[in-house]
Design a protein around this nucleic acid. Structure first.
Lengths: 221, 221
DNA sequence: TCGCTAATGTACGAACTAGTACGTTAGCTA
DNA sequence: TAGCTAACGTACTAGTTCGTACATTAGCGA
C-alpha cells in the first residue's frame, strides 16, 4: 500500500506536531460524532490515526479535553462560514433568506457538527463551559441578523417586535432538527428529511416560514 | 424512615412483578436521559432501584432492550397526550395553534423524553428499528394535522401546498430545539430558552410562526 | 557534528462494567 | 399444607478502557 521507493525522508517530515494534532482532531471528530462522548473509545481514535494513544494524552491531556478541542474546531468552522456572509447589498427580505439558507446549507453539509452539539447538550454543555475559546463569543450571524432586522423594521417591512437571538433560534431550530432527528423522524414517519430530492423543498420552506413570520400582521396585544 | 410497626406483610406485596418493572423503567429513564446510552450504567440503575441488577436482565434481557423499553414508554406518553387533543370545535387557525401549543407544552414538561430522542438519534434510531411497538405507528397528531389542514385549505384560509408531515416537522423542530439545545444555546448566547419568564413569549412566537406560514401569500412558481 | 529536547512508541495496570451461574423464597394452587 | 414456580438476591468473571511509566529517536541549534 505505502510506496517504498521513496527515500527515508518521506513527503512531509516524519515528526510534525501540527499534522499529528490535526489528524487526531479529524479522527476524534468522526469518532465522537459517530458514537457519542462515552461511546467513543480513545484506543479506537488512536488506532485510526497514524500515531498512538500516547500522543492524544501528550497533546490534549485526556479524553475530556480532546472532546473540547473537537468542539472548539467545529464551532470555529461555522463561525468562519458566517463571516463569509455578504448580504449588505441585498434588501432585508432577500438578506434574511440568504442567511437562513447559509445556516441550512452548513447544517446539511456538517452532520458531524450537529451530532457533536447534540452530544454536548446531553452533557449539559460542560465542555463549552470549560473552554476558554467558546466562552461567550456568540456568532457572527447574530450581528448580521441584528443589522438586517434593524433595516427591515425601520422600513416597516418587518414586524417591529422581533429579537435577533430569537430569530436565530427559529432558523437554527428548523435546520438543526432536520439533520439531528433525521434517524428517528425517518423511522417513525417514513420520511427522510435530508433526502436530496427534498432538499430544495425544505430550503424554500424555511425561507418562506421566516419571511412569513417577519412580515405577518400581528394582533396588537 | 421506613415504619417498622407494620407486620411482615408491608403495604403492597413484597413480590410485585409489575411494580418492579415499572420502577426499573422509571429509574432507567432518568439515568439514560441524564448520561446517554453509553454513559448510563446498569449497576447504577439497579442501585437506584429497590431491586437488583439481576431483575433488569430477568425482565428486559439486557441494556439495549432496557433502553428500547424506555423509549417505547416515552413515546407512548406523548402519543397519549396527542390523543387527548380535541380541536374539532375550533376553526382551523385556532386548532393549529392549539396543536402547536400542545407540542410545546409536552416537550417542555418532558425534557427526559427530548434527551432520549436525541440519544436515539446519535445511535441511528436502531432501537426504534428493533422495536415492534415503535415500528410505523406514526403519531395521532399527524391525523389531526391532516384534518385541520384539509379544512383550512378547502376554505381558502391556508396556502394549498402544505403537507401534514412537513408541518409536524416545523412545529416539532422549534419545540424540540428549545429544550434539546437549551444548554449549548444558553452557554453560547446567554439566553435560557426554557426560562419560565420567557415561556409565554416563545409559545406565542411558535403559534405566530406557524400561522404566518400557513396563511402567507406565496409567490406562484 | 554533537548534544538536547520535543516528539513519539511500547507495554502495562488499576478500575470499571455488562452479563451470568447459582442459590433462595414468597405465595398461589391443588 | 405441601409443593411448585415466578420472583428475587449474591457473588463472581471475562473483557474493556482510560490513563501512565518507561524507553527511544528525529532533527534543530550551537
Amino acid at each position: 500500500m505505502t510506496s517504498v521507493d521513496e527515500p527515508a525522508q518521506t513527503n512531509g517530515r516524519i515528526r510534525d506536531a501540527a499534522r499529528t494534532q490535526a489528524e487526531i482532531l479529524d479522527v476524534a471528530t468522526r469518532e465522537f460524532a459517530r458514537a457519542g462522548y462515552d461511546g467513543a473509545r480513545v484506543d479506537e481514535i488512536a488506532a485510526r490515526t497514524r500515531t498512538t494513544k500516547r500522543m492524544i494524552y501528550y497533546y490534549f491531556g485526556g479524553k475530556e479535553q480532546l472532546f473540547t478541542a473537537v468542539l472548539e474546531r467545529a464551532y470555529g468552522v461555522i463561525r468562519e462560514a458566517e463571516q463569509q456572509l455578504d448580504v449588505e447589498h441585498l434588501d432585508p427580505v432577500a438578506a434574511i433568506r440568504r442567511l437562513a439558507e447559509l445556516t441550512f446549507d452548513h447544517h446539511e453539509q456538517h452532520p458531524d457538527f450537529i451530532r457533536l452539539v447534540s452530544i454536548e447538550n446531553i452533557h449539559g454543555a460542560e465542555h463549552i463551559a470549560a473552554s476558554e475559546k467558546l466562552g461567550r463569543i456568540g456568532s457572527p450571524a447574530l450581528e448580521v441578523i441584528r443589522r438586517i432586522l434593524g433595516q427591515g423594521q425601520e422600513s416597516g417591512l418587518f414586524t417591529a417586535d422581533v429579537d435577533a437571538v430569537d430569530l436565530h433560534a427559529m432558523i437554527s431550530s428548523f435546520c438543526f432538527f432536520r439533520v439531528a432527528n433525521r434517524a428517528t423522524f425517518g423511522a417513525l414517519f417514513g420520511r427522510d428529511l435530508v433526502a436530496p430530492a427534498q432538499r430544495e423543498h425544505y430550503r424554500t420552506m424555511l425561507g418562506d416560514m421566516v419571511i412569513a413570520y417577519l412580515t405577518a400582521e400581528r394582533a396588537a396585544d
